[in-house]
Design a protein around this nucleic acid. Structure first.
Lengths: 127, 127
DNA sequence: ACTATATGTAGGATTTTTCCTACGCATCAA
DNA sequence: TTGATGCGTAGGAAAAATCCTACATATAGT
């Protein structure tokens, strides 16, 4: 439920694969998910529990089956957590292109066109 | 260097805090980062190593200090990994608002205005 | 050359994670 | 009711992560 739980849950490749399966194929009973893994069914069941505790999946009981569905909310919180780093990333990119421009001014050694995707006009942070 | 390494690196609160410090305050020598933690300096040093192996920080030696700087590229790959889930998330949202509209049609019990941020007009996936 | 500083590495204790098999519980079908 | 099916939990072994205290290395200053 906390960000800690979400990050910890995403640390396992098996759990990330579970999320992807639920995304691509929709909600499914636990057993149908488990057969895809090179791992015992109870182990998959525990992974599902970790995902559930992190709020990444929800379960609904239907007869003797338990259907798990993706709950993408926490992933959007991860996305928000990443946002400030995106700003940093863009600034690095524009700093790089500024540097390339300066190199062009000093002495163009070849004629590779400027293929940057941004306008080469940002502030330049810690380089 | 792989996505596995990046997700695993982000699983530790201490390492996420290191990244945040480097983002907010810029590159710093290892020792200056370490004093902020309720943990021995060598332990912080190992966390920095994990981050470096994941490509999340880079080090540059300056005299007897080692400055660590944020390397945001891998975080942008995480962002891309999240993208398909964002689509799923939006579809859920619009499905919810569609549902709310139907409830309005059947019998409006109060007059809360529709405060959804989207137009309530998407496809409705697995609800 | 000698000492102090900045930092990584070694080795180990402790905790956590991961995975298994065995079992219990609920549901469906005869 | 009886037997099969779907699934979680218990208990434990093995592996990995976490954190510590020495210790080694390299640079700076005197």
């Amino acid at each position: 439920m906390t960000a800690d739980h979400v990050f910890a849950a995403l640390a396992s490749p098996a759990r990330r694969r579970l999320l992807r399966l639920l995304l691509d194929e929709g909600a499914q009973p636990a057993g149908r998910l488990a057969v895809r893994f090179d791992m015992s069914r109870p182990s998959v069941s525990e992974h599902l529990k970790v995902l559930k505790d992190a709020g990444l999946v929800a379960e609904s009981r239907r007869g003797r089956e338990r259907h798990y569905r993706l709950e993408a909310g926490p992933l959007m919180e991860i996305r928000e957590w990443l946002t400030p780093y995106e700003r940093f990333w863009r600034e690095r990119l524009s700093a790089l292109s500024t540097l390339l421009d300066e190199m062009d001014d000093l002495g163009p050694d070849d004629e590779h066109g400027p293929d940057g995707l941004n306008g080469r006009n940002g502030e330049q942070p810690h380089v």
